[in-house]
Simulated scan of single mutants.
Amino acid sequence: MKNKLIVTLTTVRGSRQYSLGQVARYIVALVVVLFATSFFISNWFLVKTSDDLSDLEEDHEQLNDQYEMMLGTQNLYKNELDQLSVSLSRVASQRDKLQAENIRMGDKLYEGNNRLGELHATLGASLSGLEALLNVEPSSDMSKERLESLTMMANQRLFMLNSIPNGVPIQAIRISDGFGMRMHPIRKKRVMHHGIDYKANTGTPVYSTADGVVESAGNKHDGYGKQVVILHGFGFKSSYSHLNKIEVSSGEFVHKGQKIAESGNTGKSTGPHLHYEVRHLYSKINPAPFVAWNIANFDTIFSTVKSVKWASLKNLYPLNQTVQP
């Protein structure tokens, strides 16, 4: 009897006793130990996961603030440029009229000169703002010709920035992987990674990085999951993969900053994220210089991305217009 475990079960019909041998007792003891161990390990993982989640939420809030400053920068630039252009045109027009009046009305010359000085000061401040926006060398020239030259330069830059992918495509938690060779998380071998992976919760809005037309939208079952490919100007394309939801269709025209999809975890993916690529013709190129490209550092892209034959752009209208800031 000493090597047996007696188990008594009591019901409304009475009690019954069952005896378990030594092996059965070991099995029961092992189950209890395993249960207790799994309970403590689960609690430890829960506490650790909660701490990691808190850190991620804090990082996400910080990135939200940064993203709000980055997303749609070209629209902000364009609005500021439009306001400056209107102001400069009005000031220049008033100055020209006042100069004509000074010629015709000698008795009001003193008053006119004072007013002209004020207009020159306003014009100078506006031109300085436009120079700062374009990141060009400041000049004391406040002529109408300089205004026209700076305005043309700004319009040319905005045209390019609306035609070629630039800026960030998603309000991400962080960049989880960049362009280049890496250890593939599923295939477990070093392969080329042709884009940037943005870690983001499922359902995070995805935006087009330039004007264009949707070349394809759907699930090609090729590992990229649900994907949108947009054809832009000058032979560029951008692609957005592993999406959860697509909000555009093939052949549809889209504009820069337009919501085209929501991020997800479709295809061959180890977690919710956006895989973003930039292509020129049939070549996949590093998206990082294009993500950082804006109206202030406009010229940097031509020296950073050497695989594109930028020099031939000078022959294209409206880019072939003379600009001498």
Rank of each mutant, 00 (worst) to 15 (best):
N3S: 12
L5R: 08
I6G: 02
V7T: 06
L9A: 10
L9H: 06
G14M: 08
G14N: 08
Q17A: 15
Q17P: 00
G21W: 01
V23G: 03
A24L: 05
Y26M: 10
V32R: 05
V33K: 06
F35W: 10
F45P: 00
L46S: 14
L46R: 05
D52T: 04
L53V: 14
L53D: 12
S54W: 06
D55P: 02
D55A: 15
E58L: 15
D59P: 00
D65G: 05
L71W: 14
T73Y: 13
N79Q: 11
N79M: 13
L81A: 12
L81Q: 03
L81V: 12
Q83M: 10
L84V: 02
V86I: 14
S87T: 15
L88H: 01
V91Y: 09
A92K: 00
S93D: 14
D96R: 07
D96K: 08
K97W: 10
L98D: 12
E101R: 10
N102V: 09
N102S: 12
M105Y: 10
G106A: 13
G106S: 12
D107A: 04
R115E: 14
E118K: 07
E118T: 13
T122G: 06
L123Y: 11
L123F: 12
A125T: 05
A125N: 11
L127N: 00
L127P: 00
E131D: 10
A132E: 00
L133P: 02
P138I: 15
D141L: 08
E145I: 13
E148T: 11
A154P: 06
A154F: 06
A154V: 14
F159A: 08
F159E: 08
M160T: 15
M160K: 08
P165V: 07
V168Q: 01
P169M: 11
A172K: 01
I173C: 02
I175C: 03
G180Q: 06
R182N: 03
H184E: 09
P185F: 02
M192T: 11
H193V: 08
H194W: 04
D197N: 06
K199S: 10
N201R: 09
T204A: 04
P205N: 08
Y207F: 15
S208M: 07
G212C: 10
V213G: 03
V214W: 02
V214K: 01
D222T: 15
Y224I: 00
G225K: 02
Q227H: 10
V228L: 04
V229W: 00
I230F: 09
L231F: 10
G233A: 14
G235N: 09
F236R: 04
K237A: 09
S239E: 06
H242G: 07
L243F: 11
N244Y: 11
E247H: 14
V248S: 07
S250Q: 13
G251D: 05
G257L: 04
A261W: 01
G267W: 05
K268S: 06
T270E: 09
P272N: 03
L274T: 03
Y276I: 12
V278D: 01
V278C: 04
H280C: 03
L281P: 00
Y282S: 14
S283Q: 08
K284V: 08
N286P: 05
P289F: 04
V291G: 01
N297P: 04
N297L: 02
I301W: 02
K309S: 12
N315E: 15
N315H: 11
L316A: 11
Y317D: 10
L319C: 08
N320H: 10
V323L: 11
Q324S: 14
P325H: 09
